[in-house]
Simulated scan of single mutants.
Amino acid sequence: MRFLITIMVLMFALTLGAQPNPAKKAQKFADEMTEVLSLSKEESKAIYQIQLDRFKENQAIQKEYAGDPEIIKEKQKELGNKVYNQVKNVIGVERQKQWKAYKSKTK
Protein backbone atom coordinates (compact mmCIF):
# COMPACT_ATOMS: atom_id res chain seq x y z
CA MET A 1 0.00 0.00 0.00
CA ARG A 2 2.82 2.39 0.86
CA PHE A 3 4.44 1.67 -2.48
CA LEU A 4 1.23 2.57 -4.31
CA ILE A 5 0.87 5.84 -2.40
CA THR A 6 4.51 6.69 -3.08
CA ILE A 7 4.05 6.08 -6.81
CA MET A 8 0.91 8.23 -6.85
CA VAL A 9 2.68 11.09 -5.04
CA LEU A 10 5.63 10.90 -7.44
CA MET A 11 3.35 10.94 -10.47
CA PHE A 12 1.48 13.95 -9.08
CA ALA A 13 4.76 15.78 -8.41
CA LEU A 14 6.01 15.04 -11.92
CA THR A 15 2.77 16.30 -13.39
CA LEU A 16 3.08 19.56 -11.48
CA GLY A 17 6.73 19.88 -12.40
CA ALA A 18 5.91 19.35 -16.06
CA GLN A 19 3.64 22.39 -16.15
CA PRO A 20 5.41 25.05 -18.20
CA ASN A 21 6.33 28.24 -16.41
CA PRO A 22 4.63 31.09 -18.29
CA ALA A 23 7.23 33.65 -17.18
CA LYS A 24 10.13 31.54 -18.45
CA LYS A 25 8.37 30.79 -21.74
CA ALA A 26 7.53 34.48 -22.23
CA GLN A 27 11.11 35.52 -21.47
CA LYS A 28 12.54 32.95 -23.88
CA PHE A 29 10.14 34.12 -26.59
CA ALA A 30 10.92 37.81 -25.98
CA ASP A 31 14.67 37.16 -25.91
CA GLU A 32 14.56 35.30 -29.22
CA MET A 33 12.43 37.96 -30.88
CA THR A 34 14.64 40.72 -29.48
CA GLU A 35 17.74 39.09 -30.90
CA VAL A 36 16.26 38.30 -34.32
CA LEU A 37 14.54 41.67 -34.83
CA SER A 38 16.88 43.91 -32.80
CA LEU A 39 14.06 45.16 -30.60
CA SER A 40 14.54 48.09 -28.24
CA LYS A 41 14.26 47.52 -24.49
CA GLU A 42 10.75 48.97 -24.49
CA GLU A 43 9.65 46.76 -27.37
CA SER A 44 11.19 43.71 -25.74
CA LYS A 45 9.39 44.42 -22.45
CA ALA A 46 6.10 44.87 -24.30
CA ILE A 47 6.56 41.57 -26.17
CA TYR A 48 7.40 39.82 -22.90
CA GLN A 49 4.21 41.14 -21.29
CA ILE A 50 2.06 40.17 -24.28
CA GLN A 51 3.49 36.66 -24.28
CA LEU A 52 3.22 36.28 -20.51
CA ASP A 53 -0.44 37.22 -20.67
CA ARG A 54 -0.88 34.83 -23.61
CA PHE A 55 0.68 31.85 -21.84
CA LYS A 56 -1.29 32.50 -18.65
CA GLU A 57 -4.54 32.90 -20.56
CA ASN A 58 -3.83 29.73 -22.53
CA GLN A 59 -3.31 27.79 -19.29
CA ALA A 60 -6.62 29.13 -18.00
CA ILE A 61 -8.37 28.06 -21.22
CA GLN A 62 -6.88 24.57 -20.95
CA LYS A 63 -8.02 24.27 -17.36
CA GLU A 64 -11.48 25.78 -17.78
CA TYR A 65 -12.44 23.85 -20.91
CA ALA A 66 -10.62 20.58 -20.22
CA GLY A 67 -12.42 17.78 -22.00
CA ASP A 68 -13.89 20.02 -24.70
CA PRO A 69 -11.26 20.28 -27.45
CA GLU A 70 -13.54 22.19 -29.82
CA ILE A 71 -14.03 25.07 -27.39
CA ILE A 72 -10.32 25.02 -26.51
CA LYS A 73 -9.46 25.31 -30.20
CA GLU A 74 -11.91 28.18 -30.66
CA LYS A 75 -10.68 30.07 -27.59
CA GLN A 76 -7.04 29.58 -28.61
CA LYS A 77 -7.78 30.94 -32.07
CA GLU A 78 -9.38 34.03 -30.52
CA LEU A 79 -6.38 34.42 -28.24
CA GLY A 80 -4.00 34.02 -31.18
CA ASN A 81 -5.75 36.77 -33.12
CA LYS A 82 -5.62 39.07 -30.10
CA VAL A 83 -1.90 38.41 -29.56
CA TYR A 84 -1.14 38.86 -33.28
CA ASN A 85 -2.70 42.33 -33.23
CA GLN A 86 -0.95 43.29 -30.00
CA VAL A 87 2.44 42.23 -31.37
CA LYS A 88 1.74 44.03 -34.66
CA ASN A 89 1.06 47.22 -32.69
CA VAL A 90 4.44 46.92 -30.97
CA ILE A 91 6.75 45.88 -33.81
CA GLY A 92 4.86 46.84 -36.95
CA VAL A 93 3.86 44.88 -40.02
CA GLU A 94 7.31 44.66 -41.65
CA ARG A 95 9.10 43.23 -38.64
CA GLN A 96 6.18 40.90 -38.04
CA LYS A 97 6.73 39.54 -41.58
CA GLN A 98 10.45 39.16 -40.80
CA TRP A 99 9.58 37.23 -37.64
CA LYS A 100 7.22 34.95 -39.53
CA ALA A 101 9.89 34.26 -42.16
CA TYR A 102 12.44 33.51 -39.44
CA LYS A 103 10.07 31.11 -37.65
CA SER A 104 9.29 29.35 -40.93
CA LYS A 105 13.02 28.72 -41.49
CA THR A 106 13.67 27.44 -37.97
CA LYS A 107 10.84 24.88 -37.84
Rank of each mutant, 00 (worst) to 15 (best):
L52G: 01
A13D: 04
S104C: 11
E64K: 07
Q96I: 12
V36T: 14
V87C: 09
K75L: 11
S44P: 03
M11K: 09
Q76H: 08
T15K: 09
E64T: 03
Q51I: 00
R95P: 03
G17H: 03
M33E: 11
K45F: 06
G80H: 06
K25H: 07
W99P: 00
Y65K: 02
A23Q: 12
A23P: 04
P69K: 13
A30E: 03
V83P: 03
K41R: 13
A30N: 02
K41Y: 04
M11A: 15
A30W: 01
N89A: 15
Q62R: 03
K25L: 15
K88N: 14
R95M: 04
T15P: 01
L52H: 04
A18S: 13
E32K: 09
E74R: 09
V36S: 10
K88G: 12
Q51R: 09
K77F: 11
R54V: 01
E43C: 05
W99F: 05
W99H: 01
N58E: 15
A23S: 13
W99D: 02
I72F: 04
Q19H: 07
I47F: 01
S104Y: 03
S38E: 14
A13W: 11
A60V: 07
L14R: 01
L79K: 05
T34N: 06
A60I: 03
Q86T: 01
K75P: 11
Q49T: 07
P20I: 08
N58W: 05
Q59F: 08
L10Q: 06
N85E: 15
Q98W: 01
Q96A: 10
A30G: 07
L14W: 10
K88R: 15
Q98G: 00
T15G: 13
K105D: 09
I61W: 01
K28Y: 07
A60L: 08
K45C: 01
Q51K: 10
A66D: 15
K82I: 06
T34F: 03
E43N: 07
V9G: 11
G92K: 10
M33H: 05
L52V: 02
K73H: 04
K97W: 05
V9E: 09
L52T: 01
Y84H: 14
T106K: 11
Q76Y: 07
I50M: 03
P20C: 13
F55H: 10
A13Y: 05
V36G: 11
K28H: 14
M8H: 10
G80Q: 13
K28Q: 13
G92E: 14
N89K: 14
I50S: 00
I47N: 02
K107N: 12
K82V: 06
E35V: 10
F3K: 14
T6D: 04
Y65C: 05
K100M: 08
L37E: 06
M33W: 08
E78I: 00
E42M: 04
K25S: 12
S104I: 12
Y84F: 14
K97T: 09
K75G: 08
E94N: 07
K97C: 02
I72Q: 09
K25Y: 08
K41E: 09
A23T: 06
A23Y: 07
M1V: 12
T34R: 10
K25R: 14
R95E: 02
A30H: 02
L52M: 05
D68S: 15
Q76N: 15
N58G: 13
K77S: 10
V36M: 11
A26F: 09
A18E: 08
A101S: 12
Q98Y: 00
A46I: 01
L52S: 06
E94S: 12
